[in-house]
Nucleic acid binder design. Sequence first.
DNA 1: AATGTTTATGATAATTTTGTGAAGGAGACT
DNA 2: AGTCTCCTTCACAAAATTATCATAAACATT
Lengths: 224, 224
Amino acid sequence: MEDIKILVVDDESRMRKLVCDYLVKRGYIVVEAADGEEAFDKFVSTKDIALIIMDVMMPKMDGYEASAEIRKLSKVPIIMLTAKSDEKDELKGFEIGIDEYITKPFSPKILVARVEAVLRRSNVGGGQEMIEAGGIKLDVSAHKVTIDDKDIELSFKEFELLNYFMVNQGVALSREKILNNVWNYDYFGDARTIDTHVKKLRAKLGDKGDYIKTIWGMGYKFEV
Amino acid sequence: MEDIKILVVDDESRMRKLVCDYLVKRGYIVVEAADGEEAFDKFVSTKDIALIIMDVMMPKMDGYEASAEIRKLSKVPIIMLTAKSDEKDELKGFEIGIDEYITKPFSPKILVARVEAVLRRSNVGGGQEMIEAGGIKLDVSAHKVTIDDKDIELSFKEFELLNYFMVNQGVALSREKILNNVWNYDYFGDARTIDTHVKKLRAKLGDKGDYIKTIWGMGYKFEV
DNA sequence: AATGTTTATGATAATTTTGTGAAGGAGACT
DNA sequence: AGTCTCCTTCACAAAATTATCATAAACATT
């Protein structure tokens, strides 16, 4: 796991410390803030915050206000710490786009489990994401591929392409679609470059290269 | 919203009815099951279930067991209904990949809010398009055709043609119309080329080739 | 049954698409 | 600057599909 930053916001320093401790123990980088205003500032000034854990009850700007402000800037996942499991509150949260609630008191296990679940959902390298099919294992966070447990060296584009194929197993993918998803949107070069990458990918996958099927006049499809 | 199917699993028929009512009111298609075993069966036998809402406490197979079984087959999002907010249970659920919890008793608003949140997360809607008729299944997204669940190899044009026929089931189609819809508008060749494609298509469809009927002096029609 | 028209079929030609190897070029690293 | 890897492009070969045509069969009408 590499340097995932979590912003922890709570006005009670004891609670904040507690949360931070557990997260640090799990290898996350933690940034702290004592209220909504500070949270917002820290979020803006700190690069690549992957997740925010925020208490609802806070002076100056409460958790919902702060979340709403941050939502204007970013879709960063937010977990809300709440004392009461108030229904109205949860609804309010869903509108803003709160990803998860943790009711106090909570156990460290619950905290970590939810954090990893949210990170997994938002595709941050957090809990490692794996895709497997037909003996090909793709470790997204580590950017690594193994075939029958043997390491395979893939270039960046090759990896991205294989990843896209495997995520869309069984789906016919046009070259245009592949370009739009694997290449940046500002790429306007020749679509045939895909062919070349497919060729290389097939070669590197050995026997399993056959899983990448050509759909004549259409594109490609990954299918075991 | 177009025909999103939700599987509701609860042994208490009153609770099940309640949940279903709210979902139906929101325009979802609901499939019901009374226990984990039935849930699994229904999930397997019903196509394109977009979401499962499941009670934890059930006879035969509880919610976690059922979820674990279903997880072996699919990544369909699962929302768990739980009476007690038991910490251990939630942990167990996260391992299996439960997407959300709703604690009983809950309000319809909470229910709907969570359902929509989960569906939004899983990007339902842009999914797979399917046409079926007389044992011929046409998977548009995968560009794949099966007859009685056996794969059939079709070329691009053949696929497009069959697709057009099946979309216009029971409608007599003139050659001109077929040309304008399946071929590009810039095609000004011989309309008799359709005959050849129809021939090939019929051959590849085997017995079911008869579904493509010739309308003498007019064109063709697909009818089961 | 004969005739003219339309459709089915099989073979062949034309076109399109894909596979492949090689080469140029951009960027990273030494 | 030199080397390296990776990405892209190009040209040609290979493969597959699609179109065309000639002929046979089927159909409708008289």
